[in-house]
Design a protein around this nucleic acid. Sequence first.
DNA 1: TTTTAATATTGCAATATTACGATAAACAAA
DNA 2: TTTGTTTATCGTAATATTGCAATATTAAAA
Lengths: 110, 110
Amino acid sequence: MGASKTEHFTDKQNEIASLVKALAHPARIAIMEYLLKVDTCICGDIVNELPLAQPTVSQHLKELKTAGIIKGTIEGNAICYCLDEKVLAKLQTYFGNITSKLEKRKNNCC
Amino acid sequence: MGASKTEHFTDKQNEIASLVKALAHPARIAIMEYLLKVDTCICGDIVNELPLAQPTVSQHLKELKTAGIIKGTIEGNAICYCLDEKVLAKLQTYFGNITSKLEKRKNNCC
DNA sequence: TTTTAATATTGCAATATTACGATAAACAAA
DNA sequence: TTTGTTTATCGTAATATTGCAATATTAAAA
């Protein structure tokens, strides 16, 4: 086994799980935070920012890109990366709905 | 390898990554949504709600519990599960900060 | 053209995850 | 006590993830 049984869940559940999975590693959280910090697209120095070898960083970037969290456009012989606002807004909305539903209910039985 | 190099990242980055990782599977998203839907602690029928075998569900519940997303209290010979509002609020705040920072910057160069 | 710099891909080893049958443990009910 | 119900754990197979050295690719610069 080892493969998730995605076919049994709703599209929305699979979508959220896949977005969240793309961020389920400290290196990818760090990449997102770095792209946020520099406050612009960054062309180049992502590898130098992380305590990981270049192929490893490249792999993490690929996962973020595949999930849609970041976008990368070729800029000369470097690549310009930035965050996709829409996709991150999706996550914010999702967790916002969850906590607002939880706040409304005040029967905290546990 | 296969093991994440968590020691190279900040505590906060590791914490968020670990929370997010606990939700990085459609079954665990489904469990969270079910606990939200029933609008109370639920004692029992989580296994019946999911298209997975009982040991598999038990394992997913354990991961959610270890990460702190859910709490489980023994209730007779059943177990009463519910969401931990505080932990989910942490995620909401995190993604809220990210999107609000992204919205402020209007230099969308990509 | 040759060199240099930036990024991607390949291949592989170590480890983690997912899933479930079998079984155990805990406890209520008969 | 025996039985049934609920949940956890063990063991194991299949698959995925993580990390990096080696190498390839791409394009600017010399």
